[in-house]
Design a protein around this nucleic acid. Sequence first.
DNA 1: CCGAATAGATCTAGAGCCTAGATTTATCCG
DNA 2: CGGATAAATCTAGGCTCTAGATCTATTCGG
Lengths: 415, 415
Amino acid sequence: MDRVLTGSSPQVLRALNARRVLDHAWDVDAFTASDAMAWTGLTRSTVIGVCDHLVRQGWLDEVDDARAVGDYRKGRPARRYALSDRAAVVVGLDAGYDHMTATVADLRGTPLARSTVGIPARTPESIDRLADAEARRAFARRTIEQAIASSGVDPRQVLAITVGVPAPVDDAGRSPGHHWFWELVNPGFGSTLAGLAPIVQIENDANLLAIAEGAVEEGRGRGVHSYVAMVVGEGIGSGLMIDGRLIRGRRGGAGEMRFLDRVEGVGSPDGLALLCRAWAIEAIRSGTLPEGSLLGRLDPDTLRESDVEEAADAGDAAAIAILDRLGDRLAVICLVVGDLLDVDLVIVGGAIADALPAVIRRARATLADSDDPTAPELVASRLGPEAVGTGAIHYALGLVRERALDLAPGARHVA
Amino acid sequence: MDRVLTGSSPQVLRALNARRVLDHAWDVDAFTASDAMAWTGLTRSTVIGVCDHLVRQGWLDEVDDARAVGDYRKGRPARRYALSDRAAVVVGLDAGYDHMTATVADLRGTPLARSTVGIPARTPESIDRLADAEARRAFARRTIEQAIASSGVDPRQVLAITVGVPAPVDDAGRSPGHHWFWELVNPGFGSTLAGLAPIVQIENDANLLAIAEGAVEEGRGRGVHSYVAMVVGEGIGSGLMIDGRLIRGRRGGAGEMRFLDRVEGVGSPDGLALLCRAWAIEAIRSGTLPEGSLLGRLDPDTLRESDVEEAADAGDAAAIAILDRLGDRLAVICLVVGDLLDVDLVIVGGAIADALPAVIRRARATLADSDDPTAPELVASRLGPEAVGTGAIHYALGLVRERALDLAPGARHVA
DNA sequence: CCGAATAGATCTAGAGCCTAGATTTATCCG
DNA sequence: CGGATAAATCTAGGCTCTAGATCTATTCGG
């Protein structure tokens, strides 16, 4: 911060080493100079110089728990450093169709505050393009500002904001304009939020689910490097994490599932929650259900997916048939995507993961029985409704981590 | 080379700058210190130091055509440097099912020598796993050694060898063992070739086609960053270049096309050349062809794809119908892959690009007529039979370019 | 043919960053 | 309280970079 370098200069080396140390600092609770020496191969003098540098910049804190931890027995106790997790924060905004949730989290990803607003529903008929876009941008900004306020951090400490939307998003943060829904849910948040943080990024919600799942997996042992995260509910979207990185495609449309209308045994890109209801209603109205059918007693107008699952649990044959059909459908989708992309694992989130676990069980069984040696494993997301927000946080943290040294973390005004 | 560094040291900076300069040197014919200053933002003194360094290592030559080129008008003429393209070479081996072709190329990718051998055909019945594997490894080594010998370069100048095989290949260069064909065509070349070059890499042939097409496109203007390269002949394989990088998947199986048996209007992963012959034979044997049909006159036992195309060109209705069917099939494949991966462009190589251009024309027309706003463009590869070899060369060059400074190029023994 | 004008090459300090090794400091242990 | 031990600090020296002065090769106009 104190000096801006033209091109490359002697200080570049220092910056490089600082980067290496800081990056490792993210993965541990605290560390000593000896740890950093092992990480980097640098001399103790150098490492200490680098750490001092990072402390001065606000990235590291010197934590004096050398004796408290009890990690050592003999010799002079080592100074210990730790990522200054309260020095800066990031914000993740889950900007869904009918609600928005902003989460403020520290540099470790621990949520500090959360704020939610509901949004009036819109249909292609009731939409007012410009007004609704403007309203949505205002909702987003207000939700984020509320979350920041209730977290109690200085707004200047926000280094990055990530917004998750249910639409494909290209490198510049835009969604294709030829679709009313995409245009509605991604009305160009960039300019509205630009003032709130040095980094603002829009991202597809399924991609964020993929990132969230990856972060969780990494937490428990080794990360999986190729998997697909599917958001299955009213529609189907997917985030493709292949070879350890997210596949976006030309216009951010990678993972779109329209092609399912050409797959045998699928035939449409509809979401399984939608189909579950549609098939149940069809069965009820067909009048072919047997006398005491549980499914038959449901009201077609207020019926929900979970009602069908309950009926099936209670042994209703027609409900079981619907879930079986949905399970087979999901299995076929997994096989197709798994084959083309050679992934290990498909993680399903969205409405279906919560409301229709039996569908996922059924699809798992079908996959296990298949003779395909490369059939992927299928699991339900365990992240629940905060999944997209969590992914947004982790994505934002990744952005901060990448460019950490360009972003001095706040002016270190201790509260 | 003269000193091995422990961890990071002051010399790291020099290495970093050398890397930057050298990397740019690859993209230009020759350059002056002023050019390098613009690239790197370094001082003239520093740049000249770096260039001297690279000349001493053998990567650059000082070319004294300052006045010959006529690039300047006034002032002291600048010293000019150029990548020493003859200082080192790479080898690409196209290791197909029934033949192998090795190509030796200089650091610019210009072919210097080529050597081909035919390989006895094998079927699941006639195969002798161990003996055939050993024979194939020997063929590969011999073909490469022949090509190097006929190129006249010192074998120690070979910095990298890439082998392209018609099978999925994982990070370690292995193909899944559960398939006789894959096991046959990739019998583990790594250990056999390890002595011939410091870098040896096995890669899938469709991936190499993708790299070759990318290198060609980059040559003529800006490179496309998301496209699919398909090798269509007896089977269909594809190389997925998305967001500027090759998608491999867990076991290197990304781009496999077995899932096509689940796509409506396709139904099998068979190659279009195979189907073309099969359908033609079926038509001939069905006895339903009209009296003077050109197609009817062909001998089912010796018929080739190009015969069908010729018949269609001459107006034969049955032949035209076959090509139309093939074209529709190809269009559907493009739509499915294009949708899931959001690619701009599908490039088709293999037997079909040469023998059945009408199929590609027909598929192009179908795609253009489709109401899909994201339908990819379809083009035939123009690289011909050397495509895989060219891709192998470019892949090897990429590897050399990445690790250039770890590989001093030869001992500079001028011929 | 000669002397500006021009632009690249070289030279000279000086500063930053790193290493290696000697010295000092903080702590445990008997 | 005096080793033993491991971390921190200090010192000297080397490498690489920058900035700016000086030198050199060439064109061009008179």
